[in-house]
Simulated scan of single mutants.
Amino acid sequence: MNITKNIKSTAKKVLQEEAAAILQLADYINDDFQGCVEAILAIKGRVVVTGIGKSANIAAKIVATLNSTGTPALFMHAADAIHGDLGMIQANDFVICLSKSGNTPEIKVLVPLLKRKGTQLAALVSNVDSYLAQQSDFVLNATIEREACPNNLAPTTSTTAHLALGDALAVCLLESRNFSREDFGALHPGGSLGKRLYLKVGDIYTLNAAPKVKTDASLKEIIIEISSKRLGATAVLDNSGNLTGIITDGDLRRMLSNFDNLTGITAADIMTPSPLTIDCGEYAVEALVTMQKKNITQLIVTKEGSFEGFVHLHDLLKEGLV
C-alpha cells in the first residue's frame, strides 16, 4: 500500500467535498437570510450565538467575527444556557442557534425558553425540517449531502458550511453598516494587524533625519549628506525648495561607472528625477507595498507636495509591518 499516495488523495478529496458544499450554500441564500440580516440591523441589543458540541466552537468563532466587524455579539453555550446563562439574553437581543440536526435534546429545551423571552431567533441548521428550524423566525440553510468523514459521522463538512455561512452573514452586516477600514482598525489596535490598519507614514518618518541637497551641490556635499544622515539617500531640491530628484548610494556607484572625470559633477548630473514619493497622511503599509513592488528601501515623504523627509524599510521592520 502506498500510504503517502492515500494521504494526499484523501486530503484532496476532503477539500474538494467541503469546497463543493460551500458553493452549494449560494443556492440557499434566500429571503430568510436577507430577513435575518435586516432584523439584526434593526435591533438595539446584541447578537447572541449559541450551539452545543462542535457547533458551539463554530458559534464562538462567528461571535468573534461579528464583534470585530461592528456587530456586538456574545457567545452562549447551549448547555450552560439552561443552567443559568440564559440570563445574559436581554429583551432587545437577537439569538442565532447553530445545530447540524436541529433536534438535539439541549436545543429542544432551550428553544421554548428563548421564545418565552420574546427573543427573535434564527436557526443556522443543516436540517431545515428540524424542530429548531420549525420554531425559528429565520432559517439559515446550511444543508450538506454528507460529512467529509468517511463514516459520515465526524462534523467536518457541516461545521465548515456553518462557518462559511456565518462569515457571509458577518460581511453582509459589515457592508450594510458601511463599516470602514478605519472602523476595523479602531477595533484591532494591537499587534502588526492593528498597525497595518492605523499606522501612518506621518507617525514614523519624523524619527529620521531629512537629508537634502541643492541641485548644484558638489559631489563632496552629496556624499557627506548621505553619510551623515545614514539613510542611504538624499533628496535634491531646487533653489525654491521644490523636490526635483533623489540620489541614492546606488546612484553614486553608477556615477563611478558613467563618468571618467568627477570634477565639477553636481547633484543635477547624477540624480534620478521625479522620484517616487508618499504623502505623510498615507498608511505606512502603503509605503511597504510600494517599496516591495519597486524593490527599493526608502521613500521620500511629502506633505501637500513639499519635501518632508524619508521613510525607510527599517522603520517598517521595527514597527512589525514586515
Results as ranks from 00 to 15, higher is better:
residue 49 V to I: 14
residue 67 N to I: 07
residue 199 L to K: 07
residue 235 A to R: 02
residue 72 P to S: 09
residue 163 L to K: 05
residue 132 L to C: 04
residue 51 G to E: 08
residue 214 K to N: 14
residue 197 L to D: 06
residue 4 T to Q: 14
residue 268 A to E: 12
residue 317 L to F: 15
residue 166 G to L: 08
residue 23 L to S: 11
residue 234 T to N: 11
residue 318 K to L: 12
residue 193 L to E: 09
residue 41 L to M: 13
residue 120 Q to T: 01
residue 14 V to I: 15
residue 121 L to M: 06
residue 55 S to K: 13
residue 254 R to W: 06
residue 52 I to R: 09
residue 175 E to K: 15
residue 299 L to Q: 04
residue 155 P to G: 08
residue 278 I to E: 03
residue 16 Q to C: 11
residue 5 K to C: 10
residue 274 S to F: 14
residue 51 G to D: 02
residue 243 L to E: 10
residue 95 V to K: 01
residue 46 R to D: 01
residue 301 V to A: 01
residue 65 T to G: 04
residue 116 R to P: 02
residue 96 I to S: 00
residue 100 K to L: 13
residue 48 V to A: 11
residue 263 T to Q: 15
residue 308 E to Y: 02
residue 311 V to S: 01
residue 68 S to M: 07
residue 196 R to E: 03
residue 257 S to D: 15
residue 89 I to E: 04
residue 207 L to A: 00
residue 221 E to I: 09
residue 171 V to A: 07
residue 45 G to Y: 02
residue 36 C to H: 05
residue 26 A to D: 02
residue 274 S to V: 13
residue 262 L to W: 04
residue 91 A to V: 13
residue 225 E to N: 07
residue 36 C to W: 09
residue 130 S to M: 00
residue 304 E to R: 15
residue 86 L to I: 15
residue 141 N to E: 03
residue 203 D to F: 07
residue 218 S to W: 01
residue 319 E to G: 06
residue 137 D to Y: 03
residue 177 R to I: 00
residue 268 A to I: 03
residue 18 E to A: 02
residue 296 I to H: 09
residue 81 A to G: 06
residue 176 S to G: 11
residue 29 I to A: 02
residue 104 T to P: 04
residue 2 N to Q: 00
residue 311 V to H: 05
residue 236 V to Q: 04
residue 256 L to P: 09
residue 27 D to A: 14
residue 19 A to C: 12
residue 32 D to K: 02
residue 152 N to L: 05
residue 59 A to K: 02
residue 209 A to L: 11
residue 277 T to L: 00
residue 226 I to G: 07
residue 28 Y to A: 12
residue 222 I to N: 00
residue 307 F to Q: 02
